[in-house]
Amino acid sequence: MDTVSLIDVASYLPGPPITTDYFTRHAPSDRKAQNIMFRAPAHRHHVAAAESAVDMAERAIAPLIDRHGTAAIDGIDVLLTHTQLPDLPVLGCGAELARRLGMRPRCILDLHNGGCAAYIYMLDLARTLLSSRPDAHTALIVAVQNSAGQIFTQPDVRPLAQAAVPGDGCGVGLLHRSDRAPILDVECRHYPQFAGDMTAAIEPPRKYWEPGTGQLRIAFTESKIATVFARGNRLVPEVALAVCDRIGVRSTEVDTFVTNQPNRLFLRNWREALELPPEHHPDTFDACGNLFGAAIPVTLDTENRAGRIPNGALVLLAGFAHAGDFAAAAAIRWGAAPPPPPRTHDPLTPRCR
Rank of each mutant, 00 (worst) to 15 (best):
A117E: 09
L130H: 07
H137I: 10
A117Q: 11
H137V: 13
I120G: 09
Q145R: 13
H112Y: 00
N113D: 11
C116N: 07
V142Q: 01
Q145Y: 07
M122G: 06
I141C: 11
R127W: 11
G115D: 12
R127I: 07
A126L: 06
P134Y: 02
L129M: 04
T138Q: 11
N113V: 14
T128S: 05
L130W: 11
T128F: 02
V142G: 08
A136S: 10
A118F: 00
A136Q: 03
T138D: 06
N113Y: 10
M122E: 06
V144Q: 02
I120D: 04
P134M: 14
G114P: 05
T128C: 00
M122W: 07
V142T: 14
L125C: 08
T128L: 06
Q145E: 15
A139V: 15
T128H: 04
L130E: 07
A143G: 13
Q145F: 08
D124A: 08
S132P: 02
D135R: 09
Y119W: 12
P134C: 08
M122L: 12
S131T: 09
L130M: 13
D135V: 10
H112K: 00
I141F: 04
V144A: 05
H137Y: 12
H137R: 15
P134D: 09
N146H: 08
V142L: 14
Q145L: 09
S147K: 11
L125T: 15
A143W: 05
G114W: 00
G114D: 02
Y121W: 10
A143H: 08
C116W: 01
V144P: 05
R133N: 12
D124L: 05
R127C: 07
L130G: 12
N146M: 05
A143I: 15
A118M: 06
N113K: 13
G114Y: 01
H137T: 15
R133F: 09
D124N: 02
T138L: 09
S147P: 05
R133E: 14
H112E: 00
Q145V: 14
L129E: 01
G115E: 07
L123Y: 02
G115I: 12
I141Q: 11
L125I: 15
L130T: 12
N146A: 08
T128V: 05
L129C: 01
P134W: 05
A136C: 14
R133K: 15
T128D: 00
G115T: 15
S132Y: 00
M122I: 15
Y119R: 08
D124F: 01
I120T: 06
M122T: 11
T128M: 04
S147Y: 10
A136F: 00
N113M: 13
I141N: 08
R133Y: 06
S147E: 11
A118R: 02
L129Y: 01
